[in-house]
Design a protein around this nucleic acid. Structure first.
Lengths: 242, 242
DNA sequence: TAGTGGTCTAGACCACACG
DNA sequence: GTGTGGTCTAGACCACTAC
């Protein structure tokens, strides 16, 4: 018999792809419930168990959140306990907690070559650069530059950032329909340069943890670059190896 | 009706616990195949699907490895492509690769208070301390001290370590029946002290990435502490946030 | 060809949330 | 009570490996 050479793809993977599509197009938005497993089974003409397996994978990737008795919801950076999924810096003593954020600046400019490369933009495409600091119990601990594609985040201003209460990713989600799904971080030890030293209130060449992050939204699209320095005198970067 | 107040525990979780027990006691050892899903279903008197779900979780925790058509195997640090699950340091340019290891020393002594605390030992219990370096393409990049419980690793000598080819965790598995399951790392930027500077061939106070690791074997038992410094001039610590 | 894990289905029942 | 996700079962069939 002539059989297709195409690589085998399980039904539940195809269902998963369909669900993902609905997430990308915004048919179901962060925080909302998606249809019940049975409804989806009818819609896609497969059994409930197959839908279930697709959702299982999306839940394990933190794109969906299951809540027994209530439904399955699109993951959101609002009101999630998941803030520490992206912020790994914790105090040496005492409970992890979310730091205070202080926006220093937010301006539009042309993408430097490196940023453009990381964000899949052309050099000189518009980008937005945010400068900010973070404080753990009043102590200056993080200084960072955040780079965003200018077209996607059109209209983002210092004021909008300053008046925002809550995680920055929640703002991006609500105002710019951009939900961060995953990120990659590269860590190094560096000596403080003049700017970092000034902001963190330490001497030049003080050892700092440099963290470069690239964040991705649905479909592996890079939409944010962060270049940060962490002061690790009373805090550390916590990582679980599983 | 009088019902038990005990919190509900799904069958597959109980099966998972039973399988875990067999892993801990060494009934099935790293690298070996465990019985087929059907055999286990008979043994535990549940359906194959229930066994399957238990194995699924253990596989996602990297305790077991499934291979279609062949069977399910106990995870091992031998011949696994998983070395980079524990070593996150990669070159800035070029492919990740496993570095060369050079053992400097291995001696028995009494547990310092901090090490004893981390390893759940009493102060003054015997411990083994290993000193070693790692080289990426001949370049000295890592200097570290490794601490192990003395009773568990009785008989570990410098010679045994030096003549060993392959990952250290594979040696621990084969010779001391201790399989590392997961680990926690705490990262900081520090200035090189005299010892680190000498070993890594850099000046005193050169910024280094300090990595403190606690590794656990089956049943969340801590069995290793590592205190390392990484030179991050041409390498970085790569971390995926999911 | 036989044995293993992988997929898919259909149905029953349990645990949980909410009105 | 009703609807949701969560568990468990039994059986059929597919894909991969080894002999």
């Amino acid at each position: 018999m002539t059989e297709t050479i195409a690589t085998f793809s399980p039904l539940y993977q195809q269902i998963k792809a369909l669900i993902l599509e609905s997430l990308q197009t915004g048919e179901w938005r962060p925080g909302e419930a998606i249809p019940s497993e049975n409804d989806l089974a009818v819609r896609y003409k497969v059994s409930q168990g197959t839908v279930r397996k697709a959702i299982d994978e999306l839940a394990s990737e933190h794109l969906l959140v299951r809540r027994q008795g209530k439904g399955t919801f699109v993951a959101t950076h609002h009101s999630d306990r998941v803030h520490f999924r992206f912020l790994r810096l914790v105090p040496d003593n005492g409970e992890p907690h979310y730091p205070q954020s202080k926006i220093l600046d937010c301006k539009r400019l042309r993408a430097p070559a490196e940023i453009g490369r990381l964000l899949d933009l052309k050099t000189n495409d518009p980008v937005i650069q945010i400068e900010r600091m973070m404080f753990f119990s009043k102590e200056a601990t993080v200084y960072e530059e955040i780079w965003l594609p200018g077209t996607l985040f059109k209209g983002l201003t210092t004021e909008r950032l300053v008046e925002w209460r809550g995680p920055m990713y929640a703002l991006f989600e609500t105002e710019f329909s951009t939900h961060m799904v995953r990120a990659t971080e590269r860590l190094r030890a560096v000596g403080a340069d003049e700017l970092s030293a000034k902001h963190l209130g330490v001497g030049i060449n003080t050892p700092l943890l440099a963290v470069e992050r690239v964040s991705y939204t649905y479909g592996e699209r890079p939409v944010e670059v962060r270049k940060a320095v962490y002061l690790t005198n009373h805090h550390h970067y916590l990582n679980e190896l599983n």
